[in-house]
């Protein structure tokens, strides 16, 4: 079975983002970039499925400028077989990315699509569900366990009230949550070998993206900063302040 995996290049999760002084956008110049952590989990899960003999081929896809090849190379060092870069210099929203993936699903005919549940830049949590809707596939978001059965999968989802397990006919779209696995690090020899694996670069214009630009970002601002308060010396002082100063406990 072939697995299609999405990979997004985002700000490194340890880096605090800066807002541009003119409030038009965030400032990512000279910022450390990395693979979105949830995409790392998706790549790891695909590699484990290949190690178990369930997956036969892993195709990783990223939509973006040439630099996203860094993240595609990393995914191939971790175990993906080949990569597709859908090239564009423009910012693309989750709807456009979902349309690209829907077309790739039709071309590549994967048995499973694995995506991160959200990217830590736009924090949308949309692409997998949009893709599943467009492609007429079942979806299991917030996955913390995937088990293969005959012709279907069972996926455990982390939902607000606890855990939920769904059965899905294949092909299906699964989006990864934090506790699905712990991604491995790439080994140097694998990084060297990944340079020989193929990246198929295709312009975004080759895809039938019909989504109109309905969204316009008018402003991006820094959030209101919270002031640090005071240090208290004892539990008694804390309780006193909470009762008599903040008035939050009786």
């Amino acid at each position: 079975m072939k697995i299609l995996v999405g990979v997004k290049r985002v700000i490194d999760y340890n880096v605090q983002v800066r807002v541009r002084p003119d409030e038009t956008d965030v400032d990512l110049s000279n910022t450390k970039m990395a693979m979105n952590p949830f995409c790392e989990i998706a790549v790891e899960e695909a590699v484990r499925l290949k190690e178990q003999g369930i997956a036969s081929e892993i195709v990783v896809v990223s939509v973006g400028p040439k630099v996203v090849q860094e993240q595609l190379r990393l995914a191939m060092a971790l175990g993906a077989d080949r990569a597709i870069q859908v090239e564009t210099e423009d910012a693309v929203d989750s709807l456009a990315v979902a349309e690209v993936f829907a077309e790739l699903v039709a071309q590549e005919q994967p048995g499973l699509v694995l995506l991160g549940k959200q990217s830590i830049d736009s924090d949308n949590n949309q692409t997998g569900q949009m893709l599943a809707g467009m492609a007429g596939l079942g979806q299991a978001t917030f996955a913390s366990a995937i088990n293969f059965k005959e012709g279907c999968i069972q996926v455990t989802r982390e939902v607000d009230g606890g855990l939920q397990t769904l059965e899905l006919t294949l092909p299906a779209v699964v989006t990864t949550d934090l506790r699905l696995n712990e991604p491995r690090h790439a080994r140097l020899p694998d990084i060297m070998k990944s340079k020989k694996k193929p990246i198929d670069v295709r312009p975004l214009g080759d895809f039938n993206v019909t989504a109109q630009n309905y969204l316009k970002v008018l402003k991006v601002q820094a959030p209101a900063q919270r002031q640090a308060g005071e240090m208290v010396a004892s539990v008694a002082e804390l309780v006193d302040k909470l009762k008599n100063q903040a008035g939050v406990i009786a």
Binding site: N125, Q126, Q129, A132
Partner: peptide
């Protein structure tokens, strides 16, 4: 978050989260 983007994808409309 599970439901609305699926509707949006089928309608080919964006969603704000």
């Amino acid at each position: 978050k599970n439901l609305l983007p699926r509707v949006a994808g089928i309608k080919r409309l964006p969603q704000l989260s």
